[in-house]
Amino acid sequence: MSGYGGDAVDFSFSLVVMGDSAVGKSLLVACTQPATAVDVPSMEPQFGLQSKVHTYESRGALYKVQMWEVPGAPRYLQGASRYASLAAGVVLVFDVNRRPTFERIALWLDAASSTGSQLPMVLIGNKADLPPSASRVSSGEAEQFASRHGMQYFEASAMANQGVTEAFSTLMATVIGQIPNPPEPSLLVKTRIQIGRKLADNRAFRAALFDIPSVPQ
């Protein structure tokens, strides 16, 4: 990613949501829609992937966040690294009552990590509101896994919309915290964040970024 994005936002970036089938990825993404957000209709699926675009405002800046949901079928594992290579952050999801979905998180993590970049990530154990099964993954076990891999762990219920905002907000804050000041484009390339048209068209920003002397009035 380089150059200026065409959207009337300050910055834009992508998040990738990964995990096995039927762990609740789609509903988790749906829960991220703030009441005050400007929602852009979903894009047509590409190679089975679903894309949802939200526009968020935080501390006076406007962000376009594109969320890619990778299907959970095993055949998509190989292609997951491609989308991770374009993303600024990754959300890994498993079903707390289906242990195999937790055990396979390591495979999704490997796919996301194969890009060679230290991407910000969070781990979500979804469906925590359901009655515990015999194979339920404990919070302590999931937290230990997340800690070993430099992530934070969140138990959530997409159905009840509990814990979802906290997980995504934490990842968003980490991603946004990487934006250098000033946000010089060549430095942003490493974070996979783009400058949007709103900021690029700001005269004061251009003057600061390119050291343009101010013109006397």
Rank of each mutant, 00 (worst) to 15 (best):
Leu77Phe: 08
Ser117Pro: 01
Met151Ala: 02
Gly150Asp: 07
Ala134Ser: 14
Glu141Val: 11
Ala111Phe: 01
Glu103Ile: 08
Ile124Gly: 04
Thr170Leu: 02
Gln118Pro: 07
Gln152Glu: 15
Ala88His: 02
Arg99Leu: 14
Pro131Asn: 07
Ala134Tyr: 05
Trp108Phe: 06
Val91Arg: 01
Phe102Asp: 00
Arg148Cys: 10
Val122Ile: 09
Pro120Gln: 04
Ser117Ile: 09
Gly116Pro: 01
Pro100Ser: 07
Gly150Met: 08
Ala73His: 14
Gly150Val: 06
Phe145Ile: 11
Gly72Leu: 02
Ser81Ala: 15
Ser81Asp: 11
Leu123Ile: 08
Glu143Leu: 11
Met151Gly: 00
Gly150Phe: 06
Ala160His: 13
Ile105Asp: 02
Ala156Asn: 03
Val164Gly: 01
Met159Arg: 13
Phe145Ala: 08
Val93Glu: 03
Leu123Pro: 00
Ala142Val: 09
Phe145Arg: 08
Pro120Gly: 02
Val122Ser: 01
Gln118Cys: 14
Phe145Val: 12
Lys127Gly: 04
Met151Gln: 04
Leu92Met: 06
Gln78Ser: 13
Gln152Asn: 14
Leu92Val: 06
Gln162Met: 14
Ala111Gly: 04
Gly116Ile: 02
Leu130Trp: 03
Ser133Ile: 03
Ala167Trp: 02
Leu92Asn: 00
Thr115Gln: 10
Val96Phe: 06
Ile105His: 00
Ala146Cys: 05
Ile124His: 02
Tyr83Ser: 09
Arg99Asp: 10
Val96His: 05
Asp110Ile: 11
Val93Tyr: 02
Leu77Ile: 10
Met151Leu: 10
Val164Trp: 04
Glu155Ser: 10
Gln118Gly: 12
Tyr83Asn: 10
Ser117Cys: 13
Arg98Trp: 07
Arg136Glu: 11
Pro132Gly: 06
Thr165Asp: 12
Ser117Phe: 14
Arg75Ser: 15
Ala158Asn: 00
Arg98Asp: 12
Thr101His: 02
Ser147Leu: 13
Ala111His: 00
Leu119Glu: 03
Ser138Thr: 11
Asp110Ser: 15
Arg98Ser: 10
Glu103His: 10
Leu77Ala: 05
Gly79Trp: 08
Gln162Asp: 09
Gln144Val: 12
Val137Gln: 03
Ala84Phe: 05
Ala112Thr: 06
Gly89Ile: 05
Tyr83Ala: 08
Glu141Leu: 10
Pro74Glu: 08
Glu143Gln: 13
Asp129Trp: 07
Ser133Tyr: 05
Ala160Gln: 14
Val164Cys: 13
Trp108Thr: 02
Phe102Cys: 05
Arg75Asp: 15
Ala128Leu: 08
Ile105Val: 15
Ala88Ser: 10
Ala87Ile: 09
Ala84Cys: 15
Thr170Val: 07
Phe94Arg: 00
Glu141Arg: 08
Ser157Asp: 06
Gly89Phe: 03
Asp95Met: 10
Ser133Ala: 14
Ser169His: 07
Pro131Tyr: 04
Gln152Cys: 13
Pro100Cys: 06
Glu143Ala: 15
Ala84Arg: 01
His149Tyr: 13
Glu141His: 06
Gln118Ala: 15
Gly150Trp: 08
Thr170Gly: 09
Arg98Thr: 11
Ser117Val: 12
Val93Lys: 04
Ser147Ala: 15
Ala87Phe: 05
Arg82Asp: 10
Phe94Asn: 01
Pro120Met: 04
Leu92Gln: 00
Val91Pro: 00
Ser139Cys: 09
Pro132Leu: 11
Ala128Cys: 14
Ser81Phe: 09
Gly163Met: 03
Ser113Phe: 12
Ala111Thr: 04
Ala80Tyr: 05
Asn97Trp: 09
Leu77Cys: 04
